Structures are given as structure tokens and as C-alpha cells.
Simulated scan of single mutants.
Amino acid sequence: MRLKIKSFSFRSPLSLALLLVLLLPACAGGQEEDDSLRIGVTLYDQDDTFISSMSQNLEQLVQEEESRIGQKITLFISDSRHNQTTQMDHVDRFLARGCDVLCVNMVDRTGAAVIVDKAAAEGVPVIFFNRQPVDEDIQRWEKSFYVGASAQESGTLEGRLVAEAWTSELERWDGNGDGILQYVMLEGEPGHQDALLRTEYTIQTITDQGIEVERLARDTANWNRAQAAARIASWLDEFGDQIEVVLSNNDDMALGAIDALKETGRPLKDWPLIVGIDATAPALEAVEAGQLYGTVFNDSRGQAQAILDLAMALCHGEDPAGAVELVDGHYVWLPYQLVTRENLALFQQGGG
């Protein structure tokens, strides 16, 4: 039996209508689809490097699972392109066409309650992932789940990475020799839980080590490499070599900082310390090149595996606690890990 994977994005009302007519029957059943399992996945933005990695891992794992169990699986992946209205439309159509499980990477976490209620009304389990809804929304229904990693933990590890680098090589990183860590902070989306927690716990962990810090600037770059490059270019014009550390809520923005520094022509030995979170493939390359001091491994394949294990248990009417380790009956948490040049090879080979 052959896996069917449907991936698409909607860029206009006309293309939306045409694509839904052409593609959504694959999620509907029909005579040739009656024995298949149908999983609808909606992403907040497939251009996000980490989300793209998760999507690719999920596709590969579904192929392996289909071969293992000998049952057809239709995996239907949609790209909401940062539009909550579009995502809600995808959810409605997935439900109308009879998908067995919904997997939702929220555009706006405040919209989760509506999705939970829609899924519950149709008796369709829903698995949120990567962008965590509030607990009250998850608890609205017994078949609502979340798969992800603790934002607090990622911030703590990023802070530890910086604190260890600062204390072990103070002369290298303390450019003005005043003993104060001068930094700029690249944050994700305004009000986004992961951005808030990563920012808070990164700084708290550094200061808990007795390191005095001074924030030169902070701004959101919406997890985006190009936006981050623009922010850093502006800050380099304003602060120059006063910037000793660049803290970033994710790797794409850290890579944007690297892009901006490359444009200046400044020698690598004179760059500030730069750190990120996710351990994406481009970030690992930057660690190897000595441009990114380190990152925090966010296990995209492990999360994709947990999503699939949970979805398969729910599709077959099995106890999900037998397929994954559930916390409080609704949550699956995967750990983060530090990545530096010292242990880089382990993650280049496929993760910790």
C-alpha cells in the first residue's frame, strides 16, 4: 500500500477553492479510501525552518508506519501562512471530510478553544504541537493533547550556555573589560508564550550565576531570519562593538544575526557571542563554522514520532497512555539538550 501525502499552501481565495475541491476528497473517504487512516495536519507557517523539519520528519515516519502495519495512511498537510482565519478554515474542512485525527500547530494560541470545541463536537481527537495552547483550553476535552518541549527549559539551557562561555573565556567575550555582559535580545512573536519564557529564563539563568548584565536593545523578529538580520544591522550601527552577546529565541533569528555580521566584514574573532535554540541543520553548520557559539537541541523527529504514536493510538481507539508518556493526561514533553562544537558530531548524525 502506498502513502498519500498532501502538502499545500493557500495564497488566494481562488487557489483555496480549487485546491480544496481537488485535494480534500483524499481526506473524505470515498470507496477507495474507506480502509485508510486520515490525519489532517495544519501548520502555522511551513517556511519556519523548525516546523518544516517537523513536517518532513512526520512524512517520513508515516511512510515507515504504513509499511509496518500494512494499512494505508493519508497524511494531509496544510500551510496556514500565519493566518488564523485560514487555519480555522482548514480545520473545518478536515472535520467535514472525515479526518480521524487533527494535528494543529496553532497560528494564534488564543484560538485553540474554538478548535477543541469543534473537534469534540465531531468526536475527532486533536493533537496540538510546538505552539502550546493555555492549559484551560487543553483541558476542555479528554481527547485534546499537546506535544512539545518546555520553553522554560530551553531558556534555562541557553542561559547556561552563555554563562559557561562567559565565565570560562571572560577576556574573549568581555570586549570592554568592565565585567558586565552587554547583550541584545532577538525575541519571537509579541506575546508568544515560548518567546516570553525563553527570554525570561535565559536572562534569569545568566544572572543566577552572579553575572551582571546590561541590555542594550531588545525587539521581536517573529522567529524570522531576515527580520533578525535587519534588527542586528540597526543595532550594530547604533552600538557597534559594545554588543558582546546576541541572545536569540530561535536559530533562524541567530542566523539572521550572523548574516548581518557577515555584511559588516568584521573578522570572526571580533564577533559577539551568538546563541540560538532549535539545533536546525543550518544552525549546526554555523556551530561547526564557529559563527554560532552553540544552540539548544529541540527534537523535531522525536516530537514528530510522539505525534504519530499518539495519533495511531487514537485512530485505533487505544489508550494513548500506552503509546506515549502522558503528563497530566494531556501532555507529551520531550527534553532539550545543549549543543556546542564539543558534542556537535552527535547531533549532525541525527540527534542526541
Rank of each mutant, 00 (worst) to 15 (best):
L3Q: 15
L3P: 09
K4P: 06
P13L: 05
A17V: 11
L19H: 12
L20A: 11
V21L: 14
L23V: 05
E32S: 12
E33M: 11
R38A: 09
V41C: 08
T42L: 01
L43W: 03
Y44H: 15
D45Q: 07
T49G: 09
F50K: 08
S53L: 14
M54L: 14
Q56H: 12
Q56W: 04
N57G: 13
E59W: 04
L61T: 07
Q63Y: 10
E65V: 07
K72Y: 04
S78Q: 12
D79F: 01
H82M: 13
N83L: 12
N83S: 15
Q84S: 14
T85D: 13
R93E: 13
F94H: 04
C99S: 14
D100Y: 01
L102K: 06
M106H: 07
D108W: 00
T110C: 08
V114Q: 14
V114P: 04
V114I: 12
I115G: 01
V116E: 01
V116K: 00
V116R: 00
K118H: 04
A119T: 01
A119W: 00
A119I: 02
F129M: 09
F129S: 05
D135C: 01
D137A: 15
R140E: 00
W141A: 12
W141H: 12
F145I: 05
G148C: 05
S150N: 10
Q152C: 10
E153I: 10
G159I: 02
G159F: 00
V162M: 09
A163Q: 08
E164P: 08
W166R: 08
T167H: 10
T167Y: 03
T167S: 14
Q182N: 11
M185F: 14
L186A: 06
E187M: 15
G188K: 06
E189P: 06
H192A: 13
L196W: 04
R198L: 02
R198M: 01
T199H: 12
Y201P: 07
I211Q: 07
I211H: 04
E212Q: 14
E212T: 14
V213Y: 01
R215N: 09
L216Y: 00
L216Q: 00
A217E: 05
A221H: 02
N222F: 15
N224P: 08
Q227D: 13
A230T: 12
S234L: 13
W235A: 00
W235T: 00
G240A: 14
S248R: 05
D251L: 01
T264D: 05
T264S: 11
T264C: 04
L268C: 03
L273E: 04
V275D: 03
G276F: 07
A286Q: 09
Q291H: 10
G294S: 05
V296L: 05
F297P: 08
G302R: 00
A304M: 03
Q305I: 06
I307C: 08
L308G: 07
L308C: 07
D309S: 11
A311S: 15
L314C: 03
L314H: 01
G317I: 03
A321T: 07
V324P: 04
E325Q: 13
L326G: 07
L326A: 07
V327T: 15
V327F: 12
D328W: 01
H330N: 08
H330S: 10
Y331H: 15
W333A: 03
W333Y: 10
L338R: 09
T340E: 02
R341E: 14
R341N: 10
E342L: 08
N343Y: 02
N343D: 07
N343G: 04
N343A: 04
L344N: 01
F347H: 10
Q349L: 11
G351H: 02
G352C: 10
